[in-house]
Amino acid sequence: GIPATNLSRVAGLEKQLAIELKVKQGAENMIQTYSNGSTKDRKLLLTAQQMLQDSKTKIDIIRMQLRRALQ
């Protein structure tokens, strides 16, 4: 079985993952909103794209940590 310490770690990672998935969803929504907007929305679009990139990276890292914890 999986050690108890790993189980609480997994629960924490799953919570983090859920949050990051919401951030990713929000960033994707912002990108959709701003991509057909005016030029003043360009900065917001770039910010949203950066957020999305960061979020995807975090999600990958969390998933990797989850896999390790579940081994």
Rank of each mutant, 00 (worst) to 15 (best):
G1R: 08
G1I: 10
G1W: 10
G1K: 14
G1A: 10
I2M: 10
I2E: 07
I2V: 12
I2W: 13
I2P: 09
P3I: 06
P3Y: 02
P3S: 06
P3D: 11
P3M: 06
P3G: 09
A4F: 01
A4C: 15
A4G: 10
A4R: 08
A4S: 06
T5V: 09
T5C: 15
T5E: 13
N6D: 10
N6L: 07
N6A: 08
N6P: 05
L7K: 13
L7F: 02
L7C: 15
L7Y: 02
L7M: 12
S8G: 10
S8T: 10
S8P: 07
S8M: 08
S8F: 03
S8C: 15
R9T: 13
R9M: 09
R9F: 11
R9A: 07
V10E: 01
V10M: 04
V10S: 02
V10K: 03
A11M: 08
A11S: 07
A11W: 05
G12D: 14
G12Y: 15
G12F: 15
G12E: 15
G12P: 03
G12L: 15
G12Q: 15
G12M: 15
L13I: 02
L13C: 02
L13F: 03
E14D: 02
E14M: 15
E14L: 15
E14K: 14
K15S: 07
K15T: 05
K15N: 06
K15W: 07
Q16W: 06
Q16R: 10
Q16V: 04
L17W: 02
L17M: 03
L17C: 08
L17H: 01
L17N: 00
A18E: 11
A18T: 05
I19F: 08
I19P: 00
I19H: 13
I19S: 07
E20S: 04
E20Q: 14
E20L: 13
L21R: 02
L21N: 03
L21K: 04
L21G: 01
L21F: 04
L21A: 02
K22S: 06
K22A: 10
K22F: 05
K22W: 06
K22R: 10
V23F: 08
V23I: 12
V23A: 07
V23N: 12
V23Y: 10
V23T: 07
K24F: 08
K24H: 06
Q25F: 06
Q25S: 07
Q25K: 10
Q25N: 05
Q25L: 08
Q25C: 09
Q25T: 06
Q25V: 06
G26T: 15
G26V: 15
G26S: 13
G26E: 15
G26Q: 15
G26M: 15
G26F: 15
G26D: 15
G26W: 13
A27N: 02
A27L: 14
A27T: 03
A27R: 02
A27C: 13
E28K: 04
E28F: 04
N29S: 10
N29E: 13
N29H: 14
N29K: 14
N29Y: 11
N29R: 11
N29G: 06
M30N: 03
M30Y: 04
M30G: 01
M30Q: 05
M30K: 03
M30C: 08
I31F: 03
I31S: 01
I31K: 01
Q32N: 12
Q32K: 14
Q32R: 07
Q32V: 10
T33P: 01
T33K: 15
T33D: 15
Y34R: 03
Y34H: 07
Y34E: 02
Y34S: 04
S35H: 08
S35Y: 13
S35N: 13
S35C: 15
S35L: 13
S35V: 12
N36G: 06
N36T: 10
N36M: 05
N36C: 15
G37K: 06
G37V: 05
G37R: 03
G37E: 09
G37F: 01
S38W: 03
S38P: 06
S38Q: 09
S38I: 10
S38G: 12
S38F: 07
S38M: 08
S38V: 11
T39K: 09
T39C: 14
T39W: 06
K40L: 08
K40A: 13
K40Y: 12
K40F: 13
D41A: 03
D41K: 02
R42G: 09
R42L: 13
K43A: 13
K43P: 06
K43N: 09
K43Y: 06
K43L: 12
K43E: 13
L44F: 07
L44Q: 08
L44K: 11
L44W: 04
L44C: 11
L44S: 04
L44N: 05
L44I: 04
L45I: 03
L45K: 01
L45Y: 05
L45D: 01
L45R: 02
L46Q: 11
L46Y: 07
L46P: 02
L46H: 08
T47D: 11
T47F: 14
T47W: 15
T47V: 15
T47R: 13
A48E: 01
A48S: 02
Q49T: 06
Q49M: 11
Q49E: 05
Q49H: 07
Q49V: 13
Q49C: 15
Q49D: 01
Q50A: 10
Q50F: 03
Q50W: 04
Q50Y: 04
Q50L: 09
M51P: 00
M51W: 04
M51C: 05
M51I: 12
L52C: 04
L52I: 02
L52M: 04
L52H: 02
Q53W: 05
Q53I: 09
Q53P: 00
Q53V: 09
Q53D: 06
Q53F: 07
D54K: 09
D54T: 07
S55C: 13
S55L: 03
S55R: 01
S55P: 00
S55G: 01
K56L: 15
K56C: 13
K56W: 04
K56I: 15
K56G: 03
K56Y: 04
K56P: 00
T57L: 12
T57M: 14
T57P: 01
T57C: 13
T57D: 12
K58D: 01
K58G: 01
K58A: 04
K58W: 03
K58R: 14
I59Y: 01
I59F: 00
I59S: 01
I59D: 00
I59K: 00
I59R: 00
D60M: 12
D60Y: 14
D60T: 12
D60I: 14
I62W: 00
I62M: 02
R63K: 08
R63T: 05
M64N: 10
M64I: 10
M64R: 13
M64K: 13
M64Y: 07
M64H: 08
Q65P: 00
Q65I: 04
Q65K: 08
Q65F: 05
Q65W: 06
Q65Y: 05
L66M: 04
L66A: 01
L66R: 01
L66I: 14
L66D: 01
L66H: 01
L66G: 00
L66E: 01
L66S: 00
R67M: 09
R67N: 06
R67S: 09
R67P: 01
R67H: 09
R67G: 06
R68F: 10
R68T: 11
R68M: 13
R68I: 14
R68A: 14
R68Y: 10
A69S: 05
A69N: 03
A69G: 03
A69C: 07
A69Y: 07
A69E: 10
A69D: 03
A69H: 04
L70S: 06
L70R: 08
L70P: 02
L70A: 07
L70Q: 06
Q71H: 09
Q71A: 09
Q71V: 08
Q71I: 13
Q71N: 09
